[in-house]
Design a protein around this nucleic acid. Structure first.
Length: 575
DNA sequence: AAGGAAGGCAACCGCGAAATA
DNA sequence: ATATTTCGCGGTTGCCTTCCT
């Protein structure tokens, strides 16, 4: 029994995990001396008729017993395992062991780059739905994926990199545009609430099949079912599971200071202004209200500007990295579960009811009284999804609303006219060329964005590519680049980077519909806003020094001497 | 070489949904 | 219809290994 069982077990172990003597290595010290841990001794001892269920690492003998049981009885009815075999393991533990280690066709070992990419994409769309993600990765377990992701989060946090590759953003953006044109934007249920119930959120299995490492040919990406995701997320928010804020990780374990990791956030904290008036931040507001975090709820509507967000909302990384930086002076621990590109709201219906929800738009410049605007977006807004396409959609909304400049009706975000007028940011093709200059700081920085999915030469991990390498290796065309410079922590500039994309990614999109030949600065500003969100780019840490004159000129133009985000779109205040 | 920190992995726990009695 | 059981998922923890100082 013991020998044969052990042999059969070993078939499923990778070479580096053969559970021979290593079993003992894994045994906690307090169990090492216990006879029950020895091989073949896992048959439960009875303690007053109730077997003492064993915990901790499994021995090969236990594995053999479990496998033998499954062979005979099949999977399921895990609680019966202990009864039939005497194995001192609870059914739960048996199921877990089987699912994660013993079942056939398990793929062991490190994830391949393809798998890693797939995980990233899946996570961008699904969030922390490990089991579902595992369904897209044959031979991989949810636990494996989960561990991989958690490791990735930590690793990229340390590196100050966004969790999601930019090409994901464009893939979604491009696809959303296509779907928008075909009137099947964002949800597929008969009614938004159908999918809101979370019943029919399915990721198209073909989405990632053709995902190419060089991201030159973006596969069809079915747009997210934002409502379904909303359901998922709202559930989490409803249970106060927000982003994970782990002060120990964030403030103690990070080798880099918090500012460098979440510079945008930091800058927001520093300046009290958020760059993004994104409604997905509202849940965090609520969270803060209840958690006592830094958010100051100002009852005065006139003060409902971005300062509220600025105090605690990570404008980029918090959402892009899936974890909330504790660089903020948060005094408490708030759990923020969400995929990096997802946001949600506490009340899942609030955003869906967008058509009837007036938004109070506050001009942070104080040049106009708060205005109530009606959303002119499609009723089904992606705001609630928090996914990539949601952000893209919002940017598109902004862009579309631009067509009505006199009313400043921008859906959910208002771009102050004066920003554009005074920004000197009209980007010409010449500027593109300038920014595309690989020598220029921006060129390098922008290109660095794409490091993640830039094929490595001799590298083993997609995560390890240094920025500088990517800068030169990226052959993408830098479509837009915009500097917004402002002193951050002294002489640091914030570089709001343009994004290198596939040239056709936005051609024909609302971004350029009206100004395809000479896109104005507003388009790019909007575009970059969204991109900056997507990228989670280390806006202040990955900054690249600008030429002094240029920098100062922009600073003056934006009036950013004291606040780098002053020119940012005003937030819409949800009632 | 030693100690500590970080990484990585396996397993457990709590909760909720589904199935069953 | 209700209570109980089973199952599955996601979050978290603990331990070992590896890396760094």
């Amino acid at each position: 029994m013991r020998n044969s069982g052990a042999i059969s077990v070993f078939r499923f172990w990778p070479m580096n995990q053969i559970p021979d003597d290593s079993d003992k290595r894994m045994i906690p010290k307090d169990q090492m001396d216990s006879p029950s841990i020895e091989e073949g001794s896992s048959v439960g001892s009875l303690n007053g008729g109730n077997p003492v269920l064993k915990k901790g690492p499994w021995t090969s003998a236990e594995d053999a017993i479990l496998m033998d049981y499954v062979k005979r009885h099949g999977e399921g009815n895990w609680n019966a395992v202990q009864k039939h075999t005497g194995l001192s393991r609870c059914g739960k533990s048996c199921r877990l062991r089987w699912a994660n280690h013993l079942r056939p066709n398990l793929k062991k070992g490190a994830f391949t780059p393809e798998e890693e990419q797939l995980i990233v994409e899946l996570h961008a769309k699904m969030g922390n739905k490990w089991a579902r993600m595992a369904g897209h990765l044959p031979g991989r377990t949810d636990n494996e994926i989960k561990n991989y992701w958690n490791t990735r989060v930590k690793r990229r946090q340390r590196a100050g990199l966004p969790l999601y590759p930019p090409n994901l953003c464009y893939q979604i953006a491009d696809e959303n545009q296509r779907c928008n044109n075909s009137s099947e934007y964002f949800y597929y249920g008969k009614h938004p609430t159908d999918s809101l119930l979370g019943s029919d959120f399915d990721i198209c299995d073909t989405v990632f099949d053709n995902f190419d490492a060089d991201h030159s040919a973006l596969a069809y990406a079915r747009p997210f079912s934002d409502a379904a995701v909303t359901s998922m997320l709202s559930k989490k928010f409803g249970s106060q599971k927000y982003f994970l804020v782990d002060p120990t990780v964030s403030s103690m374990k990070r080798p880099r200071d918090s500012e460098s990791l979440f510079p945008a956030l930091h800058s927001n904290f520093s300046n009290g202004h958020s760059r993004f008036g994104h409604p997905f931040l509202e849940p965090l507001r609520k969270m803060q209200r209840t958690s006592g975090l830094g958010y100051h709820c100002d009852p005065d509507p006139s003060s409902k500007n971005l300062q509220s967000f600025g105090s605690a909302i990570p404008s980029s990384h918090a959402f892009l990295n899936g974890t909330f930086s504790a660089s903020s002076p948060s005094s408490g621990t708030v759990k923020l579960e969400l995929p990096s590109l997802q946001h949600t709201e506490i009340d899942g219906s609030s955003w869906l009811a967008c058509s009837s929800t007036p938004l109070v738009v506050v001009d942070t410049y104080g040049e106009s009284a708060p205005a109530t605007v009606s959303l002119q977006t499609d009723c089904v807004s992606p705001h609630n999804s928090g996914l990539l396409d949601a952000l893209v959609h919002e940017a598109q909304v902004i862009s579309c609303a631009k067509k009505e400049p006199s009313e400043k009706r921008l859906g959910s975000v208002i771009i102050p006219d004066n920003v554009v007028k005074s920004s000197e940011l009209s980007i010409s093709e010449k500027k593109f060329e300038e920014f595309n200059d690989p020598i220029s700081p921006l060129g390098c920085s922008a290109a660095s964005i794409f490091s993640e999915f830039t094929p490595l030469i001799g590298g083993s991990s997609l995560d390890e590519l240094p920025h500088s390498n990517a800068a030169s290796s990226s052959g993408d065309i830098l479509m837009t680049a915009e500097h917004v410079s402002s002193p951050i922590d002294g002489d640091k500039d914030i570089l709001i980077e343009g994004v290198s994309v596939q040239p056709d990614a936005f051609v024909g999109s609302p971004w350029f519909e009206d100004n395809s030949l000479q896109p104005d600065a507003k388009d790019y500003s909007i575009f970059d806003d969204a991109i900056a969100i997507f990228m989670g780019q280390d806006l202040s840490n990955d900054y690249n020094p600008l030429p002094a004159g240029r920098s100062s000129a922009h600073m003056q133009a934006f009036g950013l001497d004291s606040c780098p985000w002053n020119n940012m779109p005003n937030a819409c205040q949800m009632p």
